[in-house]
Design a protein around this nucleic acid. Structure first.
Lengths: 417, 417
DNA sequence: AAACCTTAGTTCATGGCATTAATCGTGCTG
DNA sequence: CAGCACGATTAATGCCATGAACTAAGGTTT
């Protein structure tokens, strides 16, 4: 029930978007197949495809024989039409990567973060530096970069300024988008890291082929990215999906958020290790950082360890069941470093625990899988932000389209042979 | 990222839908105001409005002076253009109501249900009987009924057959939509009762003016209707929003669904009374049905009652916090007969309990209110289903539009004076 | 009361769009 | 080499929203 008018231009943009999205997501396709799957007439497909080919956004990529007729010409998005930069602002380091339009990584830069609560200005400086660094490294014209996507933990307001609230970084209302835009002309997109990782899994990972999924991320923190009908569910102010602090055990363990009985206090890495420590009468788990400590715990086969892990699986199942009951997804994708570690060993038991806690029907409609991309995909997920924008707009960055259209129309492209 | 083409006709339909929705929801409006709020050109507004006036769907309704110029003519949806029938299939009775397009109830029929697990055929017979009964009662031509909406507890597949799975009725895969269509030519819509009630609250009740809300319903059962960006959130198979069986107290009380620690086992009417019974050493709460027993409990001021109710408020707050964390709504609307009873007395304390369990930021972005329409609004909610359809299609039931367009175009309507 | 101003709403010419039908292109088969 | 089958393009058509010009309806000024 959108209160937005539709004009004749929206129509063309929408159809270009549909075609581009199909071509990009489902690999090389012929005009015929495009017509079939989008219900557009062949004439329109030809017309629209001709346009995007003229613009250089799409190119012909060989042909495939058709039973005794003219062979079909396959189309694909030109990988070098433009480039995407994705950045992951983590708690310990900033990672910046450059991709071509096939999402192949071409260059990478990394900056450690020293302070526990880094200065926003310093982060912005790193990001801008990384932006020029990766373009130089890959030998790419900065003007060919279609956009910079930045993923960050915490919530990001969907406004032009992209105001960030990130407890873990100690940021409260940092207009990261505005700050970046002051330093570069490249279009900037900022979003929550879990959401971008979720988007990456949907397009290239365990979520492929589904339109309704929940990507459940378990690490030190616990969060979820909800995808509905192919797009990220955001809620009123983009903070939807805060799964870690739902109450799973009323009056239970203290969580670092100050509340009692949060899911995170039971299945977050810290929560697991802490419970093990208690069960083990104060003796700590093997030293090192959280990640290796959890790995150690998963490898040990003492009764205590078994009991703690068993309990963890139960809580995790209950948490996943909550997601299934409330969101009714086709698929739950379990990820995050702790989630993957648990899932590698216990996935069948996690499924059982979920079955015990979820309603029968929604459970039967959902499959539970593990993430396929690994935690480094956050930067790639960030790069999907400008890509999503490109696809949604049908490939025409408004301003850029206004100029060339005013000049004389280029002659029809020479036929590829 | 919809994979659907757009044609020139979709454009007009979409714009008609936008205009109709505005006119219907926001009362009498002038063409000028319509143009402003929809961004359509005045020419198009005039054109489209002229069309719907010719069809009789919209009518002029007086005029209002404008500072020293030609007065504005107000437009409204013609209340008698068509009629809507809404039916509520409850556990103890079937209620059928007829409304005009202003949602004014004109007639009503009710049928008690004797069996605990009523026969689908009998329910269908009652519904069809009710359909003719209310039209006769109101003296309305059955052909003027735009649609029949049926609300039922349980999940309803969004297929043409509208297959219903309702545990409480003992129905497993009943194609209610198909069965009804076999008995009437009127378009039939079937949906879950909580979702229709939620829609009613969004349009006419406590949800007015918001686009993201969760309607939390607490009665014997516990459920929720999630509204995102103005439309009901359904998930992959329309069973999203099963709030009652999320785990709130891991390993806690046995729920009737067989699981342990469900929210419903604590804040559902039965759960509350049962906990009181246990706290009160086996002495039952005041007799009568659940509803009066709960009323009695709410009025009593014993220490035991206070303790149980206090606990209930805590659990309810945790449950609402889960909704706020996961869906990030602008508003949570608390309803259902038990929810209203609790809310009437404890709303401030429910808010506090929610604040304790939710994340600070999402909590601050959400207001918590009580339902305004009462439980009888389920039938009206059901009637919103055909209305929503009418608005979404811009008022043209496809088939009906095909014929008249083929005949000669009617002359321009005489100008109203 | 006549001329003029202001605001609301309508008509008309225009350009953009997808569609259908016809046409052209390309390779295979008899 | 003619005919066929399938892919892709072009041409003609009808629908659509838009801006500009115009009409309608009331008040205000002289």
């Amino acid at each position: 029930m959108d209160a937005r008018r539709t004009t004749v231009r929206d129509m063309r943009r929408a159809n270009r978007a549909v075609l581009l999205t199909r071509i990009w997501l489902d690999g090389p396709l012929s005009r015929h197949e495009l017509g079939q799957s989008t219900a557009l007439s062949l004439a329109s497909v030809s017309n629209l495809v001709g346009e995007v080919i003229d613009e250089g956004l799409v190119e012909e990529a060989g042909s495939v024989e058709s039973d005794g007729g003219r062979p079909r010409v396959l189309l694909r998005v030109t990988p070098s039409y433009g480039y995407l930069v994705g950045a992951d602002v983590g708690e310990t380091r900033i990672q910046v990567e450059l991709f071509d339009l096939t999402m192949t990584a071409l260059a990478k830069a990394e900056y450690p973060i020293a302070a526990a609560e880094p200065d926003p200005g310093a982060v912005v400086a790193h990001l801008l530096h990384g932006l020029t660094a990766v373009t130089e490294q890959a030998g790419v014209d900065p003007a060919a970069v279609l956009g910079l996507g930045v993923a960050i933990s915490g919530t990001v307001e969907r406004t032009a300024d992209a105001v960030v609230h990130a407890q873990t970084l100690g940021w409260e209302g940092v207009p990261l988008g505005a700050m970046l835009r002051a330093g570069t002309d490249i279009p900037v997109h900022v979003d929550n890291g879990a959401k971008t990782l979720g988007q990456a899994e949907m397009w290239f990972g365990a979520g492929r082929g589904t339109r309704h999924a929940v990507v459940a991320l378990v690490g030190s923190g616990v969060g979820a990215a909800v995808i509905t009908d192919g797009v990220s569910y955001r809620g009123a102010h983009s903070s939807a999906g805060e799964w870690g602090h739902t109450t799973i055990a009323y009056g239970g363990r203290q969580c670092r958020c100050g509340n009692l009985g949060c899911l995170e206090a039971y299945v977050g890495a810290e929560g697991i290790l802490d419970r093990y420590r208690q069960a083990n009468r104060g003796r700590p788990a093997a030293g090192g950082d959280e990640e290796s400590a959890l790995g150690e715990l998963l490898r040990s086969s003492t009764k205590t360890a078994e009991a703690v892990l068993d309990e963890t699986v139960g809580y995790l199942g209950a948490g996943v069941a909550t997601l299934i009951n409330l969101f009714n997804p086709e698929r739950v994708v379990l990820g995050g470093w702790a989630g993957l570690a648990l899932g590698d060993r216990f996935l069948p038991r996690i499924r059982e625990a979920t079955a015990r806690h979820a309603l029968r029907q929604p459970y039967a409609q959902a499959s539970i899988e593990l993430c396929q991309l690994g935690p480094d995909a956050v930067a790639m997920g960030a790069a999907t932000l400008p890509m999503a924008r490109l696809l949604r707009d049908g490939g025409v960055p408004r301003s850029a389209a206004a100029r060339p259209a005013a000049s004389t129309r280029p002659a029809r492209r020479p036929r590829a042979r």
